[in-house]
């Protein structure tokens, strides 16, 4: 499990993650929800060792993130950030190859090549493998980055808003894929989502954050209640049942 113990992170005088203690990353898909500025990306940054906590301890399967060798952690935990702009011209294949860096330090073995092929097949990128990233559509690009993370072959996969700027079709495509990665490949996926209906449909568990703290951590179904969602987002949210699925209504 990914465990945070009394973790605090401040930027100047504002506290973005406030004394959080939580363990997440159980089998299946865990969605991390909450309004903008709740501290979701900061939490990912702390787990992904991009940020150092001001207080507290972050560990992955018992290894302290602050002291464990970075290369060893990279074989257990993969993080895909929100903003993935690349200055150089890379092909899809080049990008996916990078996923094997923690294992082979860039010297690819036969096993590495197999992992790369499998990741490319899994994300249905065979036809694009030699395309440059700047020649791809948003959905294809996102799939290429997920393929890289998949090739990294880690137990935990953290995805920070992978649905940004994707249309309906690509959004559901990516979410179905993430679900399959959890069910077929046994990946433990933690994903930051903005659309609570998407979270309710595809995630097993939902962790809700607000003002730098965790306000709810429960199976998806239990989070999908008007009083819980209303409190998380500070906005009236109605929840109706459609075909046995809870659907949140927050428009109008």
């Amino acid at each position: 499990m990914i465990a945070l113990e009394n973790v605090t992170k401040r930027y100047g005088s504002s506290t973005v993650v406030d004394d959080v203690s939580i363990a997440f990353g159980a089998e299946g898909v865990t969605a991390l929800i909450g309004p903008n500025g709740a501290g979701k990306s900061t939490l990912f940054g702390l787990v992904g060792r991009l940020l150092k906590p001001d207080a507290g301890r972050v560990s992955v399967d018992g290894q302290d993130v602050a002291t464990a060798p970075s290369a060893a952690l990279a074989t257990t935990l993969a993080v895909l950030r929100q903003d993935n702009s690349v200055a150089a011209r890379l092909t899809v294949h080049d990008l996916v190859e990078f996923g094997r860096f923690p294992h082979s330090r860039g010297r690819l073995t036969v096993a590495d090549r197999e992992h790369i092929e499998r990741a490319i097949d899994y994300l249905d990128l065979q036809d694009y493998r030699n395309r440059f990233l700047d020649e791809l559509s948003g959905g294809q690009r996102q799939r290429a980055f997920i393929a890289m993370v998949l090739a990294q072959d880690t137990k935990y996969v953290l995805l920070d808003e992978p649905l940004n700027n994707l249309d309906l079709r690509h959004m559901t495509e990516i979410m179905r894929l993430i679900r399959r990665m959890a069910d077929e490949l046994g990946k433990r996926i933690v994903i930051v989502l903005h659309d609570i209906n998407v979270a309710a449909t595809y995630a097993d568990r939902i962790v809700a954050m607000r003002d730098g703290g965790v306000v709810a951590d429960a199976p998806a179904r239990e989070i999908m209640r008007p009083e819980v969602l209303g409190a998380v987002y500070d906005t009236p949210v109605d929840v109706r049942e459609i075909d046995g699925k809870p659907v949140a209504l927050y428009y109008g």
Partner: peptide, 20 residues
Amino acid sequence: RRTLDVLTLGEPAAVGLGVD
């Protein structure tokens, strides 16, 4: 030389791939 290649992805991605 190979770590340099990974750095072209930017600091966050490089750290995620285990670059110190």
